[in-house]
Amino acid sequence: MILEAIEKYYTWALIAILLVNFTQRKIPRTEKKRFATIYLAAILLVFEVGVVTILSRELNHNLAWLLLAVCVGLFYIFRKKALPFRLRCVECNSKLDFNHIIGHDDNLCPDCYAKAHPEEAASEAAKKPKAAVVVDESVPMVVPDTVGEIDWDSWEAKEVCVITYLFDGDQVLLIDKKTGMGSGLVNAPGGHIEIAETATEAAIREFKEETDLEIHDPKLVGKLNFQFKDGLSERGYVFFAHSYSGEPKETEEARPFWCPVADIPYDRMWEDDLYWLPLALEGKKFEGSFIFDDQKMLDKLVTIEEDDQE
């Protein structure tokens, strides 16, 4: 009777596993857990085939215990691949919701993931639709002249972008910006984060678009917050890269050129670069907040991880 019941309800168990697998497809960073459901379904299929064989050939039902032992053995062998699911965050031990239990391979709660991957968390936040705000256009937006007058903890950027510096020995690749914001100035390749990509992916893509170079393994080194007097607000993530392939080529957006790090032309760049780029070159993680009126910097605040201020 027990084997008949198992054979009867097997289909429902398989459907449940497949429904979990379909749900996982809608959740980011779920490759390991999606494969885990496949492993579980495969082990369940082995057990079902054995049960059907025992019943159809009228074998001794005690063989089901051997079959069960084989399946348990398979589960033990593939336990790391078949059971990556956790009920609690591996960092803070807080309870995970259903989506984070069956998805999100890192088994981190949203807060812990944001701390571990700040650039990805920012790009995901940028994709979320903002609540509609009714603005009286007859009343001009007032932007203060000093960073101290802005609550940067609650400040939100309308645009999120990346900027990437590529190093080759004692040289760094810069560009003469030909189009868009900052045209006419010297900068590093960069641009906006697109929907469905991380900041790291955006850094690689934008670098390719502006220089025709493929950079490898860019590392996040700092964050920039820009508030412009005309109302534009922008957050930038700064990356450093030390490996690449290809040769730099001039594109419609930029003319790339190699420059000795000691001779970076700060006088031809955005004013804020002078206050954070030297810190980054020293290996310090930083965050900078700036007020700009067009291309003129009105005020600045740059902090580093040790809480020193510049």
Rank of each mutant, 00 (worst) to 15 (best):
V221L: 11
K229P: 08
D294K: 12
I264D: 02
D212G: 14
K249F: 05
D299G: 04
L281F: 06
D299M: 03
Y237Q: 07
E234D: 11
D299P: 05
L232Y: 13
K300D: 12
L213E: 03
E250L: 04
R255K: 15
P218C: 00
C259T: 04
K300M: 09
W276Q: 14
H242C: 08
P256T: 02
D217F: 11
Y266S: 03
Y266V: 01
Q295G: 14
M297S: 06
C259M: 04
D267I: 12
K208A: 09
P260G: 11
I215E: 01
S245M: 08
H216P: 06
F226V: 01
E287V: 08
K285N: 14
K229Y: 03
F292K: 09
Q295S: 12
D212K: 11
W276K: 13
K300H: 09
R268N: 14
E247P: 06
L279P: 07
D293Y: 04
E209G: 00
Y237E: 08
K296Y: 08
E271Q: 13
L298P: 06
S289W: 10
K223N: 11
P265H: 00
E271F: 07
F228T: 07
T251D: 04
F228V: 08
K219M: 04
R235G: 11
R205C: 00
N225F: 10
N225M: 06
D272V: 10
C259W: 03
F226L: 12
A262K: 14
P278F: 00
R268C: 07
L281D: 05
K285R: 15
A254V: 00
D212N: 11
Y275R: 10
G246T: 01
M297G: 05
E209S: 13
G236P: 06
F290V: 02
A280R: 03
Y237F: 15
L274R: 10
A254N: 05
L277H: 10
E214D: 15
L274Q: 13
D217L: 06
I291E: 05
P256M: 01
D230H: 13
F207S: 08
F257W: 05
D273C: 14
L279F: 02
M297W: 01
L281H: 04
E206S: 05
E250S: 14
L279M: 10
D230V: 13
R255D: 11
D263R: 11
V221C: 12
D212V: 06
V302D: 00
V302Q: 02
E271S: 08
A280E: 07
Q227M: 13
M297P: 06
F207L: 05
Y275T: 09
P278R: 01
P260S: 07
G222Y: 00
P248W: 00
V221N: 13
E210P: 03
D267G: 12
L279G: 07
K223T: 06
S243N: 15
E252V: 12
L213T: 04
E250Y: 03
A254W: 00
Y266D: 01
D273K: 14
E210N: 05
E210D: 05
R205Y: 02
D212H: 14
R268I: 06
L277A: 07
